[in-house]
Each structure stands twice: as structure tokens, then as C-alpha cells.
Design a protein around this nucleic acid. Sequence first.
DNA 1: CCTTCTCGGAACATATACGATTTCGGATAC
DNA 2: GTATCCGAAATCGTATATGTTCCGAGAAGG
Lengths: 220, 220
Amino acid sequence: MTDTQPRVSKSTLAYDWIHRRITAREFGPGYRLVLGDIARELDMSVVPVREAIRRLEAEGLVTFEHNVGARVALVDQSEYVFAMQTLGVVEGAATGLAAPHLTEEDLLRAEEVNQRLTALLDHFDPHQFTRVNQEFHAVLFERCENPHLLDLVHRGWTRLSGLRDSTFDFVPDRSRESVKEHADIIRLIRDGADPLEVELAARNHRWRTVNAYLARPHHE
Amino acid sequence: MTDTQPRVSKSTLAYDWIHRRITAREFGPGYRLVLGDIARELDMSVVPVREAIRRLEAEGLVTFEHNVGARVALVDQSEYVFAMQTLGVVEGAATGLAAPHLTEEDLLRAEEVNQRLTALLDHFDPHQFTRVNQEFHAVLFERCENPHLLDLVHRGWTRLSGLRDSTFDFVPDRSRESVKEHADIIRLIRDGADPLEVELAARNHRWRTVNAYLARPHHE
DNA sequence: CCTTCTCGGAACATATACGATTTCGGATAC
DNA sequence: GTATCCGAAATCGTATATGTTCCGAGAAGG
């Protein structure tokens, strides 16, 4: 009995494959996604690949031009700033909603991750810092009970991580303040602060990062 | 010379066609979207229709089951509540960001729309009220300069209007308070209040509607 | 030397065809 | 009468084929 049971559709396979490569930055911004090539690489026809790309398009990871093709979305500075601003809004809200549900265990874990961030401050590697930084925030917002909102947060992170290098490439100094602000947020939550206060702390934390980026010395 | 110039792709055509019918509630929640039927109706093959449905799926308007097919997403009560909560967050933020850019003209227009809402309070029609209500809020948030955020607001409204009947079907009394709160929001903006204050007013305005819905007498 | 036109290849858009899977009704066994 | 099994119809999933559009290279003309 030959195994002709595609547990998951090829369309989904292609979607995951491309998505992974974009977020892993193997396909950088502007990278041309040629249907035929991808289909050949994945040993399938172009049809499932087309569908996968349509979905990625709807998520904003890919731009599509009629009769020309798809490429990984590239973001200019203003778009990047807008995306960060939006992420601040939704992530802040998610964190605020999650705060009352965080256990002491969660907070200890958050502190542990923040410790790792502190350790990274010497021998600074922007990309690794960004990765661990995301892990930190995930601990805080994942308990949010609103799946819609959580989905928006995830998409926001995905876009940013896929479409642009670490912000800390440009403003490494911001990382030190960032770690301190993390501690502040944890303290607020542990003290049982008003969720709105937690939300605004999380939001402003992110917005300050954007502002630091905008105010950086070298505008190339 | 025969006109064989497809200005827009058939895929896009199908997307718009389905999207319109969902938001117009011709295809209600749970409606089965059969590829072949739609393709025949639009006089095209199933391939473009598939792509269109994939995009709608990514936007959450349509759910898809492997080897079974697509149907218009149906929302249970909790999902509805989450969607409204999320809309409150993003719409509130957009309104707050838009507030400083609103002109006196905009505010007059908002007041005019709110007048129409007041007029609708007698001979109450929930659907029409919802439509004009959306128009009111659109006046306030459309000036938001962040296109990402604005996109999230639009998607939120689309989902809600497509997937469920007017909230005011269930809690008609809420409409009177709603109109009053609108006036409050306008006043805040005109007085040049802190954007954060405007944001929270807009958010809480929506959240109160959800709460009214949850607290309604008849839980069928 | 620069501009413009033309042509050919590359890539997309869509149609058609076929195989695979699910679903549902009816027949059969108990 | 009910439960189970089987088969046909419906529908999806994918491959292949063909037409169309876009883009760049190279030739022709100014």
C-alpha cells in the first residue's frame, strides 16, 4: 500500500516553507518569489504555490504585482515605524489583558529571560538580542485570553522580524534601557497594578524604541 | 480588435464578488461556498476562485476544511465578544491618533451623522442604525495617519458587519446611550483633549456596547 | 552616441483534465 | 427497527497545457 495520503495539503506545505524562509530571513525583503522555481524546489506544480502566496499576500508578508510576480514585501522607514506603532498598540493591549492572569511562575520565567537579555548586553549581538527580547514579551502577552488580539500581535511580530533587521542594529544603546524597562513592567504586574497601567507601560516601552530609532544619529 | 484585456485578474474579480456578498449578508454565516458553482456563476474556471477564497481565509472571513470546502465563517458568542474587544482596542487607538488631525469641518460632519442617528431612534431599525453608526466612527478614525492600524480597523468592521447581525438587534436600548457618548467624544476632541483620553473614550464606548450585549436579559 | 523599435524568452493567468477524498443514501444483516 | 456497510455522486486537490503579459537585449535609425 503506497502512502498517497497527504496529511496536509501541498498548498499548506508551500505556505509553511515560504513563510519559514521569510521569517528566517533566507528570503530577504525584495526577494523575488518565482512560482516555477519554488514549485520545482518543492516538487509540486505551481498551483499550490500560487495559493500559498495569495495567503501570504493577504497577511502582508508578500507583495504581488499583476503579470509580474511576487516578492517579499519591503518596508521603507515610515512603514516600519507604522508597524512598530501598531504593534505597540496591540501588544500593549494584549499584555494588559494578560496581566491579571499571570502567575508568579510566569513572572519568574520573565525575569529569567530578562536575565539572559542582561547577559547579552556584553558581546552584543543585535539579532540574538531581538530573538530573546521577543521571547520575553511573549511570556507576558501569551496569557491574553482574546485569541483575535493575540493573532494580531503574532502577525505584527512576524512582519517585523521578517521584513527588517533588528532595530538594535541601529540603536544598540536602547538595549540597556530596554532591559531596565522590562524590570519595571514585571514589577507593575507583580504589584497587581491596574491593567491599563500595565498596558501603557508595555506600549510606551515599544514606542520609546521607535523613537530611539527615529532619533538615531546616522540617517543614511 | 476584440477586448481581451482583463484590466483586473479574474482572481481579484472573484475575490471582490464573494467579499461583497459576504459583507452584504447575501452569504450568511455558515454558507457553503462551492468552488464549481461560484466559478460557473462568474464564468471562469475554479482556479481563480480558489485563490480568492484563500485570501478570504487569510482574512478570517472564510473557514476552510481540507477536502470538504469553504464556508462563510460563523462566530459564536465568545468570538463575537473577542472581535468587538479587539475592535475597541484598534479603533480606539486609531481615533486617538486621528484626533489631533481632525478639522472643525470633520467635527461638524460627525455631528451631522450623529444627528441622523438621533433621528433614527424613533422607528428604530437596528441594521440601518448600525450602518450609520459605522459611518460616524469612520469620520473620527479615518484621519489616522497610520495605514497599518487603519487597515486593522477596517478588517475588524468588515468581520463584524459580515458575520453577525447588528448588536442593536439584541440591545436596542444601548442605542440611546450610544448617541450621547458620541457627543461626549466629539466634545473631547473639540476641546483638544489628550489623545489618550480620546482613545479611552472611544474604546470604552465600544466595550460598553459589548457589556450591554453580554448583560442583555434574554440569553437564548 | 543616444534613442527607439522589435523580438524573444521568462514568468504569470487561466482552462481543462483527472485522481483522491468525503459525504450521503440505500441496501443488507441482525 | 436499527445499525452497519457499500457504492455512487459531489467536491476538492493537483498536474498539465496553452495563452498573455512583461521585460530586457540587440538592432536600426537619428
